[in-house]
Design a binder for these strands. Sequence first.
DNA 1: GGTAGGATACCTACCGGACGGTATGCGGCC
DNA 2: GGCCGCATACCGTCCGGTAGGTATCCTACC
Lengths: 204, 204
Amino acid sequence: MARQARALATRQAVLVAAAEVFDERGYAAATMAEILDRAGVTKGALYFHFHSKEELALAVIEGQGAWIATWKPATDSPVQILIDLGYAFAHALLDDPLVRGSIRLTIEHGSFTQPQIAAYQGWIDLVRGLLEQAREAGELRPGVDPGAAAGVITGAVTGIQLSSQVLTDRRDLVRRIGELWTLLLPGLVEPRALARLSIADRTS
Amino acid sequence: MARQARALATRQAVLVAAAEVFDERGYAAATMAEILDRAGVTKGALYFHFHSKEELALAVIEGQGAWIATWKPATDSPVQILIDLGYAFAHALLDDPLVRGSIRLTIEHGSFTQPQIAAYQGWIDLVRGLLEQAREAGELRPGVDPGAAAGVITGAVTGIQLSSQVLTDRRDLVRRIGELWTLLLPGLVEPRALARLSIADRTS
DNA sequence: GGTAGGATACCTACCGGACGGTATGCGGCC
DNA sequence: GGCCGCATACCGTCCGGTAGGTATCCTACC
């Protein structure tokens, strides 16, 4: 595909610029002109790498999966992994433009529903998997359905991230994630397992 | 202002049509042409009542406050009111186009940040007020901060509504709200108060 | 190791159309 | 008859996308 190092660099510049603009404006309000300007690239260069605005957006959405793939848990307690993942995701939302843009495009339902659902489902499956491990380890409260809980947790994180963005431009995001765990964990995990967990942000 | 009954009718038709289109497409992707078409009204009629697309969107956002104003609690337990409010809101999201459009416009941040924040803050204040009442009634668990919890709850409802919309077009919204309460309430209210609550949808 | 020549990577100018908004006219209720 | 409520036609702009040319690089053959 892309053979030269320079080509990869411009492609990446376009991708990051597009993610930023999509994050700030949303898909429909984002203009190619602004992406071009921010990437410092001409129209021809962009359309060489991405054939349309939609294809560019899809590539940005992919960045979400890429971020998940790079993340590695630092413990073997499934619930602790879940907590840490929440914080790690919060930091990624603050720092990584690709994640930011990807999330906004996923949340905004519009022309391309299919990849949005896929991205969403990826998160839910990840969380459900962790919760099922937790249940097998006896960490979950009885009666907690991993599938339902995974839906609630991903939804809650989505919404908290969103409200934090609208209200404070995500300045209080990490704190709010902490407050979510404080409120949510008593209904989710066994009291004795709860005592062993660290609810604080352990991001190194 | 609007003197004739016919004028009120067309104004309302425009408002509802706009809310629907905003709900389905978002602000930027919504076109005046589609709103016009759906309202069965001409351009002149619309621009007589609303001077711009933005003004129309702001009027739709107002509908949110209008809905809250009409809602009356059916109990005097603050936490039970909160639960009922969640379900009532879910049903409004399913049935009331103005609420649907209003929520989408509030959620997607864009040109008019000020009214969005106001609408959001209205919900948070409402929930916080209920939680403070609950604390005074001794229903809250010790250590629960009403302000923080209100932020978490509104955020969670927002996100759950959104994920339900993306994944199932809101078909499972009511069930998901129930799952949220199931998971959230143990961390929020005193066990003995929890026993007195009805977590199910009590919408008559 | 120099150069032909094709592929890769990119630039510039332009186009069709859709979109938000306006100007102006006109009928009907008070 | 006058203003409220609407209809119609039109306008300027901006936007996504394309056409076609050009530079840069890689490979191969001498």
